[in-house]
Write a protein that binds this DNA or RNA. Structure first.
Length: 222
DNA sequence: CTTCGGATCGCCT
DNA sequence: GGCGATCCGAAGG
């Protein structure tokens, strides 16, 4: 990324790609460490850069809340693949959600990217998110974030650690957040065993963090 | 401000 | 056939 004004490269290291080893850890370690990092979406129209503000860990085969809990299927195959790749899935018949696969080989862990602050490429994001009432809403929620970034099935399995210019997705060092600025709590909209465990992490007080919503068992139809 | 119903489809039981 | 790691607009207080 450049500074957005005169093209002068940054010199503070925020553009450095995160090494693949970053993702070679359990989701509960990776998730809070992703806060403040930059996700770069490369499109034909230029880059969109997001500062990650809210994430959720999914532990894999042993986690009843995870898509990987019941084993490998066509949908969740990317979670069983190598770390440092994207897992993109379709939800509620209309939306896409983006995860980053992490954990040691053979463990289907992932981190759901729930919200972020759009730093560059705001015009593209606004066009894809006409319902957003202000910039903070562009990526405030997992499906909103994916929509703002133009994420869909095509990006499932994409390597986010290639470090190549123009890659469709990449994760950069960004501005990591210290533990004192991080809050933790239960996952949003996820029930079942372990629902109360603090698996969700966000930057305390950040305006782009989505509101918490408890799991709601669907009311039976009458 | 909060609550609620509808949209819409692929995966799983 | 049920329901989900959601969002949005309308209606109600």
């Amino acid at each position: 990324m450049t500074d957005g004004r005169d093209g002068t490269p940054r010199t503070n290291g925020s553009d450095t790609p995160l090494p693949r080893t970053f993702f070679d850890r359990p989701p509960l370690d990776v998730a809070p460490d992703l806060l403040g990092r930059f996700l770069v979406r490369g499109t034909a129209r230029g880059d969109i850069t997001v500062r990650l503000t809210e994430v959720e860990a999914y532990a894999g085969e042993t986690d009843p809340g995870s898509h990987a809990y019941r084993g490998r299927t066509r949908r969740n195959a990317s979670m069983f693949g190598p770390a440092g790749h994207a897992y993109v899935y379709f939800i509620y018949g209309m939306w896409w959600n983006l995860n980053l696969v992490c954990g040691r080989d053979g463990h289907a862990g992932g981190v759901l990217l729930r919200a972020g602050e759009i730093l560059t490429g705001r015009e593209q994001a606004r066009e894809r998110r006409p319902a957003a009432r202000d910039d903070a809403e562009l990526g405030k929620g997992p499906a909103r974030l994916a929509t703002a970034l133009g994420i869909d099935r095509d990006l499932d399995g994409t390597d986010v650690c290639s470090g190549e210019q123009g890659a469709p997705l990449g994760v950069r060092a960004g501005r990591p957040v210290g533990a004192a600025a991080i809050s933790a709590g239960p996952r949003t909209g996820v029930g079942g065993a372990g629902a109360d465990h603090p698996w969700r992490f966000w930057i305390t007080g950040d305006r782009t963090v989505s509101p918490y919503r408890a799991h709601q068992p669907r009311r039976r139809q009458r």
